[in-house]
Amino acid sequence: MSWLTDWMNSPRKILASGKKESPTPEGMWLQCPGCKETLYNKELHGYLMVCPRCNEHLRIEASKRAEFLFDEASYQEFDLDLKPADPLGFKDQKRYKDRVKDAVKKAGNEDAMRNYLGEICAQKASVSIFDFAFMGGSMGSVVGEKIARGMERAVENRCPYLLITASGGARMQEGILSLMQMAKTSSVANQLKDQKLPFVCLLTDPTMGGVSASVAWLGDVILAEPGALIGFAGPRVIQETVGEKLPEGFQRAEFLQEHGLIDAIVNRGDQRDYLSMTFRHLMQRPFANKTL
């Protein structure tokens, strides 16, 4: 942590250029939302966007996540041709079409999902990673289709399916079609179950609404990153509805584990090893000859 101590002792003339709660920091410096420490962005990437001081897991781009998750040069991205349509001609204060254009520019992705096939510690896996930078990782028709294809790719390759979530929920701008993605993805998840292929969910900050209330909770094993906000209704909505103060740590990964809702909390740096072991346990099936 020498860079940090060095910097701490130096005169503070450079201020954090990232916004206070910037999810994907672009500037050279940013402030950790956990401990408020000012961190050097480049160095933070080396730490997989985890604050070395307080273990706050900052949001990380889908492509960066793939980089550290897979074995080097073992993976390939799929389904890049899918682009969002505007089936409702949706317009609020801004047109959906324009929001999509802006999001493509901002996230460098056609929609809020990236699909991969690759190896994690030499174990092949089909992996879908939400891209929060694209309209808050919201699930519309493209995201739903990509999840379905990711699952089907696992079936074709007889390998586990890993879903890494980061989403505010359903994409309102696609109206009822976005709601139907919950039904679609949950339906296709049955294929993994039928084929006895592992389905593991890794919930990251945040996993809310329609994504939480569908595929995110259908894994055989459900993991979460420390401190991730996970829930059905947003804290503000709940606060407004019930008018009570929310309990300490409400809807955080630790709170969910305490309430028996998730299997384990795994630090980002440990995820590769953890996942490969989970897959190994679920794929070995020593009693399989008796059950088939």
Binding site: S212, A213, S214, L218, F232, A233, F250
Partner: peptide, 26 residues
């Protein structure tokens, strides 16, 4: 809509809805 309350979250509102979607499909 589903109840947005502290108790509902504590008992797994998301999981309950998700489970139904998956099982109704088959």
């Amino acid at each position: 809509g589903a109840w947005p309350g502290i108790d509902a979250e504590e008992r797994g509102q998301s999981e309950a809805i998700a489970r139904n979607l998956m099982e109704l499909a088959v």
